[in-house]
Design a protein around this nucleic acid. Structure first.
Lengths: 126, 126
DNA sequence: AAATCATATTCCTATCACGGAATATGCTTC
DNA sequence: GAAGCATATTCCGTGATAGGAATATGATTT
């Protein structure tokens, strides 16, 4: 993974928001939609972009797909993610996203717990 | 200066090399050509790109133009430049550039000293 | 097996970024 | 002021990218 590719991943606002959220832990796609307030296609495409380049990994659980930061990250990626997080701390959009994530997440903890059978009928968490 | 704009500046290999070199101090354009081994247009355009976005500033001295990192840099920019430098340390291209810079630079110290009158006929330093 | 839900992909369009060739500018020297 | 040098800009062609609408896939429920 070239350094430039990392920056290419970082040069879109939506992807920055996704990565900022992902730094908190794995999240399923519908969460992203709610947190970012962006249409499904947009979210899905940018996640695909990041996955194609190995920044994130996805895992299916029933109807839902959970995305997380890739398990193995190069030193460069690690450094840049840390840098992003530091920068994001003081930028409104990112703070808002994390705040919304906090509200939504507890109600859907079962998703990440990996037991889709215990799921309520839907993931429209909130 | 939006965070994304910073990343846009960083998502081209030539610009990364330029910034890596600039981290050592101001440099004139012909140095860049020699150090990077890239054609004049390419160097000039990317420097223009960086200048348009406020990452670097330029100053004319006689026939030559000296570029340096912008005096005032946002926290975000500062963080990312530091991150870049750290990453660059272990990447061959960047190391090579700095090595070549070291060789070339002394012979042209007068340029940055700001006395074009004392210049030898040309800046083809080396 | 039909309907429903969550997510992914395709198709299209508009925009933008890079690179190179050629040309322009601005300064200096003769 | 003409020639020469260092740098900048313009004008192309080409390829990448983002976004939206529509459609497809894959899993689940009835």
């Amino acid at each position: 993974m070239e350094l430039v590719e990392i920056y290419e991943c970082l040069c879109d606002p939506t992807r920055l928001r996704l990565l900022n959220v992902l730094a908190q832990g794995p999240v399923c796609v519908c969460h992203f939609q709610d947190v970012l307030g962006e249409p499904q296609v947009k979210i899905s495409k940018h996640l695909a972009y990041l996955r194609a380049r190995g920044l994130v990994a996805s895992e299916r659980q029933g109807n839902w797909v959970i995305y997380g930061l890739a398990a193995k990250r190069s030193r460069e990626l690690e450094a840049n993610l840390a840098c992003l997080q530091e920068c994001a701390q003081s930028i409104p959009v990112f703070k808002r996203d994390l705040a919304r994530l906090k509200k939504i997440e507890p109600s859907c903890a079962w998703v990440r717990a990996g037991d889709p059978r215990k799921a309520p009928g839907q993931c429209r968490c909130g």
